[in-house]
Write a protein that binds this DNA or RNA. Structure first.
Lengths: 349, 349
DNA sequence: ATTTATTACGCAACCGATTGCATTAAATTT
DNA sequence: AAATTTAATGCAATCGGTTGCGTAATAAAT
């Protein structure tokens, strides 16, 4: 390292391509092209420039680069809640890929509110993200706040909590089949009187799981009535609703399919307090394969749900599209495989 | 909305201050100042400009604004893992405040590796973040990658997994006191033979908790030996080490203080498999007050740990500093209150 | 040796907003 | 009425890269 550049470096002075250009007696254009490995620059000058840049501790000014390229190298993400096991798993997958590809992530949470989701979407739009990955809030019912993006060609990709918008791909699992599998499992374990504890049915994932539940019942000649369904916000504080429901219908429920492991865990805990034996009296199956499943007593049967994979795919999808590589986004919907995981809470022995 | 601006709007054409300037027969400077509510612009023109901007669907180009202001309105965050209950809780707090204050968050995870942490730090530096919030990786042992920031005056704030760097504030709890409290609780419950399962001791939080553990033992005239300590990576797969340790020391451990609820849960589960009764044979206390504590059987005693608050404070700290409001950053260290939570896993009855 | 391709690089406009320094017009003071 | 403030706005440079187009120099073709 030369004395001069060492001095500049330690001084923390931000050096620009103009500085390099001057130092090397070439034009800023040449410096820029060299740094970006442009074909029309000789290998000789290229290496010269690159080395000088290194020595001088040169960093591109992203603002300037973004401005002229009209591209931010940033992906926006909106999730309902950051502090949810499942969502943070998706995020971990997204981050892994984005980071490897040199993309930044701007992450925001809607806190399950459409209003905040809108605000986040606008903020991200302003920030000039190159793509948007979204998992919808509970109560989102209009979707205009995403059309800003699609209108100007910014890809929007929905993950898990999806909505079928024009030109937007979705990454999901086959929730209906999964719901069916969970339900059929309970039936096969001998349950005669089923209950499905669902999330808000305006979110398609829950509606589809319910449909799977109904299908499985029908398949096994069981009649579905209101008594078989409890729609919940799946918040731990709402466990009381389950107990109320059980008392109201006054039927001996012997199998419960809960659309979420966390809430299933809370339910089991509460049922145990009321001296129900799980699985002897009531068999329970959850959804997600949260790490909590194996830590509970009894361990919780569930549907394994590839959150990390979904995140990975989402990131690969948008980045592949942006970079013009394998472009998954023309695909309307990508559905990942789920898996029934049988544990103690639904087993007979 | 005029026909012209409506047309522009639907066309998705990006309109600039120059467009507005032309349309209104004023200079771009006036438009810019009006939009930024600069005092030297008459109220009349201000409202005129603002309204026109609204109608035209004008959005500032952040790249350009960032470039000229040399400020990104973005805060960088590096956490060890996104998909950790505790970290995502911190993040939720950070996001809440940042979002309210109009700041974006660029989040990245080090995956407990110093190398990735370095790369993330550099990437964030490149991205021109205005501030950096960090929770350190397990194996981080050098800290130069943060001095780039401090050198050019970008505030760096450590949360939870901290390191005392020149000019960097930290947000923590009193880990030593907390470790002491947890330990003393076990002693008061009658435990005579303690074990502390710690995380890597090169992370100060774990070293401090261990110190608290030692202090409590000393206070109660118990001698600390190697048998009383198991250093672990706290990964669920490492539960075997605990069992090995118990067999090796061949002493009837009757109280375990685990430095992390998740791992405590795994330990309890494993101990139960080996027919230990918790709490009768062995009392256990964890750390964090993870939501899992209340879902386990037995419910897990722990130290309540204000993760969300830490996130909130971290964000408020850097933003307050950046905006020149209440500036917490001169404070070397901010310590939040912890709380002993006694549940079944450590109770006598 | 002359013409035609290639290669390597520089010029200068551009991306869109910000801001110090005039400048003009209106208001106030002397 | 002349001089001085004050208020409101415009000029033009600046932030740091990027990139279309032109050009000089060298190589290849005729």
């Amino acid at each position: 390292m030369s004395a001069v550049s060492a001095a500049l470096f330690t001084m923390g002075k931000k050096i620009t391509i103009y500085d390099l250009a001057e130092q090397l007696h070439v034009s800023p254009a040449t410096v820029s092209r060299s740094l970006n490995n442009h074909p029309s620059i000789s290998t000789e000058t290229k290496t010269k420039v690159v080395r000088a840049a290194q020595e001088a501790g040169y960093k591109v000014n992203k603002f300037a680069a973004n401005l002229s390229k009209q591209k931010s190298n940033t992906i926006g993400v909106i999730v309902p809640k950051l502090n949810s096991a499942f969502m943070s798993t998706i995020l971990a997958g997204v981050e892994k890929i984005a980071n490897e590809a040199g993309y930044n992530l701007i992450i925001s949470q809607s806190l399950e509110s459409m209003e905040k989701e809108k605000m986040n979407a606008h903020a991200l739009f302003q920030s000039g993200v190159d793509a948007l990955i979204v998992s919808l809030a509970y109560d989102t019912s209009t979707y205009d706040h995403f059309s800003n993006f699609t209108k100007v060609g910014i890809p929007v990709l929905f993950v898990d909590r999806v909505y079928p918008m024009e030109n937007c791909s979705t990454i999901v699992i086959d929730n209906q089949q999964a719901g069916h599998d969970a339900t059929e499992h309970l039936i096969q374990q001998g349950c005669k009187n089923l209950l499905h504890v669902s999330g808000h049915l305006n979110r398609s994932i829950y509606a589809e799981r319910l449909q799977g539940f109904k299908n499985a019942m029908a398949k096994h000649h069981m009649e579905f009535t209101d008594a078989n369904l409890l729609e919940s916000d799946l918040d731990p504080n709402s466990v009381g609703e389950l107990i109320n429901h059980l008392q109201q219908i006054n039927g001996a429920i012997d199998g419960i399919f809960v659309s979420n492991d966390r809430f299933a865990a809370s339910c089991i805990k509460e049922l145990q307090k009321l001296h129900y034996k799980i699985p002897e009296d009531i068999k329970v199956i959850g959804f997600n394969n949260d790490s909590i499943c194996e830590l509970m007593t009894p361990t919780l049967s569930t549907i394994d749900y590839p959150g990390y994979q979904m995140g990975v795919l989402a990131a690969q999808g948008v980045i592949g599209h942006l970079n013009g590589n394998i472009d998954l986004l023309p695909a309307n919907s990508i559905s990942l495989r789920h898996r029934l995981v049988v544990r103690e809470s639904s087993s007979n022995d």
